[in-house]
Design a binder for these strands. Structure first.
Lengths: 132, 132
DNA sequence: ATTATTGTATTAGCATACTAGTACATTAAA
DNA sequence: TTTAATGTACTAGTATGCTAATACAATAAT
């Protein structure tokens, strides 16, 4: 499990570079990518995903600016020290369980993945002001 | 509540026409828009959302092709007869409750709306093969 | 010193997702 | 018949999100 599978959906409507950046952020937050872990090569990942190397480079640079990655020319790209602690396993598990539950409900109601995620984004923005 | 608020996020990365189409599909599925209800005018909605009338027209035409809307030139646009029954209120409520729960968990873990929705989309695709 | 591998940079070009403007066609109401 | 409101159609232009190609620069291994 040295290199977790990074995958994107080129036909998803959402720009590839946003998907890729978000996927990497999530892998770090989940703890699948730990501080110091090597990232795939710019060229290598580009080939693997079937996208352009510049697109990968752009994402890496953006994540470096966020302090999530550390780019070393001639050496490689690594998860940066400033990448913040990953979620607690218990929290992650709880979110996974909650996700499975709502996915189950949504499927039962005839929704698809896109509809559900849109629904949740909308609801998030609506609920934010409640602030419990 | 004749016309439920339709809102989009122009800075969300996701193309406006996809957001708009999805938002309308959801309103119909939730039962907020019922069969026969009038939709906002092409021009009116365009102005309201700050987008081009052609973009709205495109979305309406697409939803008509799906059988969700009925466009009558010179008259207006309406929710079509073939729009299918809305979700049961109980199902909708269950999904809303599940959404509130996972939003709460995600916020607690430091995620944002976009991260959560991406997480759920990814998990949906992963879990699909389990097929319970 | 040489070579292979890495990230960096630049330029050109293309398809998509629009914006903007205008004209037209159909319907209902006056 | 006229008018106002609706959806339809077309053309032109722009910004974004890429693809493609190429060259350069730093590092590590030889």
């Amino acid at each position: 499990m040295n290199a977790p599978a990074i995958q994107i959906d080129k036909s998803a409507g959402l720009p590839v570079y946003l998907q890729l950046a978000e996927r990497i952020r999530l892998l770090v937050r989940e703890g699948e990518l730990k501080i110091g872990d090597p990232m795939p090569t710019v060229r290598g990942l580009a080939v693997e995903l079937g996208i352009n190397a510049n697109t990968v480079a752009r994402v890496y640079r953006e994540l470096q600016a966020e302090g999530l990655l550390r780019l070393e020319r001639g050496v490689g790209t690594f998860v940066a020290e400033g990448a913040g602690a990953p979620m607690k396993r218990a929290d992650l598990r709880a979110i996974e369980r909650a996700a499975d539950r709502i996915i189950d409900l949504a499927q039962g109601a005839g929704m698809n993945a896109f509809e559900l995620s849109q629904f949740i984004e909308t609801r998030w923005k609506e609920v934010r002001r409640v602030k419990r």
